[in-house]
Design a binder for these strands. Structure first.
Length: 279
DNA sequence: ATCCAGGATCTCC
DNA sequence: GGAGATCATGGA
């Protein structure tokens, strides 16, 4: 099989895939990863800092998927300066990059993420894909398109284990199919407008909307706040003091500005792995 | 077994 | 506009 080599600085394949932003990867027995995005699938590994793609198709797509053009060194330096906590979080996983993922997949995935564990979210997405996606290779399936989920009932989603989120999925699919949610159309909107648009879907609150803004639309100034980031951020930046979500958002914006989204991912991964603020 | 998870919604004041 | 209960499920 054809191999394509890629030298990308500030990039760890495992850290980027396993830091909680992506649910559609599979670790192979030989240290490789198989990643699915849209209707595409790739197997790749990292040897001595260099990425090896197995299969030469769609390489430009995958480089964009891994945000290959961005200078993460600059971002990390800016965040680390005068901030020992960020410096610590970044040195814990300096190879994280923010993936550029599909809108509809992020929408459904993060609706499923609410009040849920990451391993379980992955399971749900896998079942959903097996049931309604398109087979690609080796028993792996693409994430279903809105059209493939058209007409799927709340009952079925519940049977797949989606629980109370089932009715949210029905609403999301209906609204997307009804129009007004094409990527190009939404990308024209300001971040505030786009957040509002996303939150018009039942089951999408600010946190889920912010994950979509960050992981699919590249709105890197947003700072999604879940239970983990809440703990780490409060613990590290507010001396454990209880602040309202609005105050926390304001503080994050002041501290991290236009690169808050990157800061969030470094902090999230660090806090979750180290169980900061938890027993 | 009990707790908890990349929250959102509904109800109440 | 803020506080509190409720929501399904299964991994840890």
């Amino acid at each position: 099989m054809e191999k394509v080599y890629w030298d990308c600085p500030d990039f760890s394949l495992s850290q980027t895939l396993e830091c909680g932003q992506c649910f559609r990867y599979q670790k192979e027995d030989n240290d490789c990863y198989t990643v699915i995005a849209g209707q595409r699938m790739i197997t790749l590994c990292q040897v001595g800092g260099s990425i090896v793609f197995f299969g030469g198709e769609d390489i430009p797509f995958w480089k964009a998927y891994f945000d290959g053009e961005r200078n993460y060194g600059e971002i990390k330096q800016r965040l680390s300066q005068n901030d020992p906590i960020m410096a610590e979080a970044i040195s814990f996983a300096p190879g994280i990059r923010i993936l550029k993922q599909d809108f509809f997949e992020m929408l459904i995935s993060f609706i499923l993420s609410q009040n849920n564990h990451i391993p379980r979210i992955r399971g749900l997405i896998q079942r959903l894909s097996q049931e309604y996606g398109t087979p690609i290779d080796r028993g792996l399936y693409s994430f279903p398109t809105p059209e493939q989920l058209a007409g799927v009932s709340e009952e079925v989603y519940r049977h797949l284990g989606c629980g109370f989120r089932a009715r949210y999925l029905v609403d999301a699919v209906e609204k997307v199919l009804a129009g007004g949610f094409s990527w190009e159309e939404m990308d024209e909107l300001s971040t505030t407008e786009l957040r509002q648009r996303l939150m018009s879907i039942c089951g999408v609150g600010q946190k889920v909307a912010d994950c979509i803004l960050l992981f699919s639309f590249g709105r890197y100034e947003v700072f999604p706040m879940d239970v983990w980031i809440n703990r780490v951020f409060s613990h590290a930046y507010c001396s454990g003091k209880k602040l309202s979500p609005m105050e926390l958002q304001k503080l994050a914006a002041e501290n991290f500005g236009e690169v808050a989204g990157f800061a969030q991912q470094y902090l999230f991964h660090y806090g979750r792995e180290m169980k900061i603020g938890k027993g």
